[in-house]
């Protein structure tokens, strides 16, 4: 796959995943949480061709759920639930995803509330 085609495929994959998380209401706005602008959680995922995660999503940022930060704990939990919800519904990925190299193709999903979007 050439660099141009690679970039186009990446954009397509980004749009597919983002659209499913939002349109299927798996991930919704969390702007009403305390100090919402600081909240952000990143999960690393990889998909298999049956429309499910190949492995359980892995929390990357923060590396661990903070014990003394209930809003962040809940935010991470909600992001995890969003992934589970969309996984139960089944992911629709463009066939090009499985041609992306080097395989397996890992994706970091960064969850933010609307108020924190930059």
């Amino acid at each position: 796959m050439g660099a141009g085609e690679m970039r186009r495929t990446q954009v397509t994959v980004q749009d597919f995943i983002r659209a499913q998380l939002i349109n299927k209401r798996c991930w919704t706005d969390h702007s009403d949480m305390a100090d919402a602008a600081r909240l952000q959680a990143t999960f690393r995922v990889r998909f298999s061709n049956n429309g499910k995660f190949a492995l359980e999503p892995e929390l990357r940022e923060p590396a661990r759920e903070p014990i003394n930060d209930p809003p962040m704990q809940v935010f991470i939990q909600h992001a995890r639930t969003a992934l589970q919800k969309c996984n139960n519904l089944g992911w629709q990925l463009p066939p090009e995803y499985f041609k992306l190299e080097p395989a397996p193709y890992w994706i970091d999903l960064v969850f933010v509330p609307k108020i924190g979007a930059r």
Partner: peptide, 13 residues
């Protein structure tokens, strides 16, 4: 990761 996707919660549900 090879790709990073930012997902902004658009709608309050």
């Amino acid at each position: 990761a090879q790709l990073r996707v930012t997902v902004v919660g658009e709608e309050y549900v």
